[in-house]
Design a protein around this nucleic acid. Structure first.
Lengths: 147, 147
DNA sequence: CTTCAATTCTTGAATATTCAATATTTTCAA
DNA sequence: TTGAAAATATTGAATATTCAAGAATTGAAG
């Protein structure tokens, strides 16, 4: 009898694949909702992070919203044009730029938040309360264990 | 006392964000290993799917490896140049193209599989057997419930 | 049969992302 | 204090992805 080997297990059994698939699907759904306001998911994340009015450097922000630095810079350029956010040089360390959300950005962010909440509720309905919180817990712990 | 509201929960509590973060991290690790052979994750997925020697249409393949059609076409072009895969017109429906893996592709795929297995084992070690299989189960069920 | 809509894949132009290099400022050791 | 190394953000060129349109084939209604 052949030795069972992990090496030819189908792609669909790999954790990396399942994560990619789930991420793609959930992201697609969220994108669909946010497109009502014509805003990409990444911009919503940026607005949400900046909502604390504390001023975040580009580096912090890039980490928080899961974007590479140059990609973030260019996206922020667009958002500045749209007057959703603005740059301020960090007075304490002039290498840094602090990003802030504008009033217009806050108004938009509120609308986006409620669209996102819609989605989370939709997931809760079809997937269940228990599963959702358990999945969140496991994901957090996976992320933790990867650092 | 203020009504607790989901609308200003931090981004890090959203399922969509946790999935994106976990996916990014696991994918980064996998990428790192596969880069030993100079192959992007998507190409490994393609090779793996084609490993059954059955011949898959571009549409099937695009679904299976989570890529848009035009992106897949261009990636397949590269892989054909590298003689990892080849195209055959479907005799039963000449709109379709059937993709096959070459011998060279199979050799490469084996190496990649063992790099990927390395990673899965690394995850099992740091994250645990129990958590891993429970996470996989929950992800599968989330994907199911989204269709 | 013929024609028109649907399916499948590819292409080219527009857009977005990434890599490597640059500019600026800070840190810190000598 | 000075000078070299590190940290931060941006830029420009190379690369990759996406959108919309196109070409080929099939299906199916009249």
């Amino acid at each position: 009898m052949a030795k069972p080997s992990k090496e030819n297990s189908p792609i669909t059994e790999h954790l990396a694949y399942l994560l990619a698939q789930a991420n793609r699907e959930i992201n697609r759904q969220l994108e669909l909702r946010l497109s009502k306001e014509g805003v990409p998911v990444e911009q919503w994340r940026i607005l949400k992070v900046l909502s604390d009015d504390e001023g975040h450097s580009m580096g912090e922000l890039a980490d928080a919203v899961l974007l590479n630095h140059p990609t973030l810079t260019k996206m922020i350029d667009r958002m500045v044009s749209d007057t959703l956010v603005y740059r301020v040089q960090d007075p304490g360390d002039r290498r840094k730029v602090l990003m802030f959300i504008s009033d217009r950005g806050k108004v938009l962010c509120k609308k986006l938040n409620s669209l996102a909440v819609d989605q989370e509720e939709h997931i809760l309905e079809s997937y269940g309360d228990k599963s959702t919180s358990e999945l969140k817990r496991l994901l957090e712990s996976l992320i933790d264990s990867s650092n």
